[in-house]
């Protein structure tokens, strides 16, 4: 008996409530507002994605967040436009964790600086690389003989390999974006 009444009540209420949450009008209006916001600010999806990634990186340093559920959108009323960032927080990081991340970051920076240095070195040594190869052939017979020049050459080859690895990583990452 109770079920019948609640059913009837719901039907009556449903009939009189004209505003449906997912009516096509509401969908159209929301989609339009979003697209106009992007049109007006000239921010394309690629730039937004890039910004999103960098924001995630900075924020994750201090708090653990749900990266999938992070919501970054432009919203506006009238002429004013706001950047709305909605981040579901899992937990705050401890001081130790933050320090560890900072340390890792510093190391990464140092590594990058080193790589950049070596790259510029590569450019410099490009002209002399022919000589280096010749030297390599010469030293093959006397492996124990370690002079500075052949060392340089090996290092250079290694860093080249690293560079190509990094390139491959980048390439494999791109489609995911």
């Amino acid at each position: 008996m109770k079920d019948i009444f609640t059913n009837l009540y719901n039907k009556v209420i449903g009939f009189f409530q004209a505003e449906k949450g997912d009516s096509s009008k509401v969908i159209a209006s929301n989609r339009l507002k979003l697209v106009l916001m992007h049109d007006r600010t000239n921010l394309d999806t690629f730039t937004m994605q890039k910004m999103r990634e960098q924001l995630i990186k900075v924020i994750s340093k201090y708090i653990e967040i749900d990266q999938e559920a992070l919501d970054l959108n432009l919203e506006g009323e009238g002429d004013a436009i706001a950047l709305m960032l909605n981040i579901p927080v899992i937990r705050a990081r401890t001081m130790e964790e933050i320090e560890a991340i900072e340390k890792a970051e510093e190391e990464e920076m140092a590594q990058k600086a080193l790589e950049a240095n070596e790259e510029s070195k590569d450019d410099e040594t490009e002209n002399s690389s022919d000589d280096c190869e010749n030297l390599d052939d010469d030293t093959e017979n006397e492996e124990n003989n370690e002079n500075d020049e052949s060392n340089d050459c090996e290092e250079q080859n290694e860093s080249d390999k690293e560079n190509t690895k990094a390139d491959k990583k980048l390439k494999s990452k791109q489609p995911q974006n």
Partner: peptide
């Protein structure tokens, strides 16, 4: 269509375009 919530109303259009 507006009454059936299937079309944006004039007010909404005016509001969006200000």
């Amino acid at each position: 269509l507006i009454k059936a919530n299937d079309m944006m109303s004039v007010d909404e259009v005016v509001d969006i375009l200000s």
